[in-house]
Amino acid sequence: MRIGFDGKRAFHNATGLGNYSRDLLKILATHFSDDEYYVYNTKPKKIDRLSSFNNIIEKLPVVAFWKKFSSIWRQGPILSQLKKDQIQLYHGLSGEIPRGIKKSGIPSVVTIHDLIFVRYPELYSFFDRKIHFNKFKYASEKADKVIAISEQTKNDIITFLGIEASKIEVIYQGCHAVFKEEVSIQDKSEVKKKFNLPENFILNVGTIEERKNLLSIVKSIKELKTHLVVIGRKTTYYQTVLKYIDDNRLSNRVHFLEGVDLKELATIYQMAYVFVYPSIFEGFGIPIIEALYSKTPVITSKGGVFPEAGGPDTCYVDPSNTEEFSKAIENLLNNKQKRTEMADRGFTFVQKFNDDVIANNIMQLYRSILNERN
């Protein structure tokens, strides 16, 4: 089978949608190595993490005009190139498919990660909301099937986009293989020295933005004897968090790390006593999965998608209740046996997100679409 993919995120986004795209491609290329995966990129790649796979082929615009206007090319004119490459099925990995693909005769799938811009419109500009909504609505209506990365996202697609439930398949994400490897004591020692990490710390990973709710964690550790390590891209919300840290003399206990590569991140996950993720809303919550694979106990938010990602043995709290968060952190820090039990049970639960499960679910969906067309 020859499958085409939107490669914009895979080659240009270091986190989030980029990780989803790369991980899915790697999983398919490994477990179904006889198939060919054509990944359509708009311009020379910034991130090269797929070149080791012979069956993953990067494709750029071949016409000079579309090389110059590549952002328009991927929205529709790409179809002529898909036909020349004899693509049998196209997968939009981040909520988009080319305009006119239904009429072209090429079957398509689109992955919708979340509809946060609908649930929390105040976090987005008016124009961004309109653009996202139109793209997602079009893709969901015209694609043969829609992949939702969680039941939460599936319900939102039904509610906000008006798509029939029968058209939507829930296929969970996994995470990078590096988070599944046990880190040596020597590696931990080197990472600890490089980033000057404290002996006892809790960890938060994710973009430092209002929705991720980092300020609640900072407030919750004010009276606790622990350190907080934060890894994530900074936005303007960072200044709000920093002001609270400075006003409450917490700068010696809150550590913002930069320049952390994947291997180092996996090592830090395994060194943390507890992983805390008080996000208000997510489409799924990959950092939770990364922590569970790292055998690190997790505290996260009640409701929404979080129980899907965290399972029955994660600790769930009201993300707006700082006191509840503080008690949950303190209880785990003071109870090593509880931390171990949560880590072991969480590791058992997270096996449902293993690569072979995801690969088989994705390929089964592709084949079912092609069988229906034939």
Rank of each mutant, 00 (worst) to 15 (best):
M1Q: 08
I3F: 12
F5G: 05
L24F: 12
L25S: 08
K26S: 14
K26F: 00
T30I: 11
Y38G: 06
N41F: 00
N41A: 15
I47E: 07
L50I: 08
S52C: 03
F53R: 05
P61C: 06
K68Q: 12
K68H: 02
K83N: 03
I87R: 02
G95Q: 10
R99L: 15
I101E: 06
S104Y: 01
V109R: 05
H113F: 05
D114F: 03
I116N: 11
S125E: 09
F127N: 13
D128Y: 07
D128L: 09
I131D: 14
I131C: 01
S140H: 02
K142L: 04
V146Q: 05
T153F: 01
T159I: 01
L161Y: 04
L161Q: 06
G162D: 03
I168Q: 01
E169D: 12
Q173E: 13
C175S: 15
A177R: 14
E182Q: 14
E182W: 00
Q186P: 00
D187W: 00
D187L: 09
D187R: 15
S189K: 15
K192R: 15
N196R: 11
L197N: 10
V205H: 04
V218L: 07
I231E: 01
V241E: 01
Y244N: 09
Y244G: 09
I245D: 06
L250K: 09
S251W: 00
S251A: 13
H255A: 02
E258I: 00
L262E: 14
K263E: 07
A266G: 08
Q270M: 09
Y273W: 01
Y273L: 13
V274M: 03
F284T: 13
I286P: 03
I288A: 08
I289K: 04
V298L: 04
S301Q: 04
E308H: 12
P312F: 08
C315R: 14
Y316T: 13
S320M: 13
N321W: 04
I329T: 10
N331L: 08
Q337W: 00
K338P: 00
R339C: 14
R339Q: 15
G346N: 06
Q351A: 08
N361S: 15
L370Y: 03
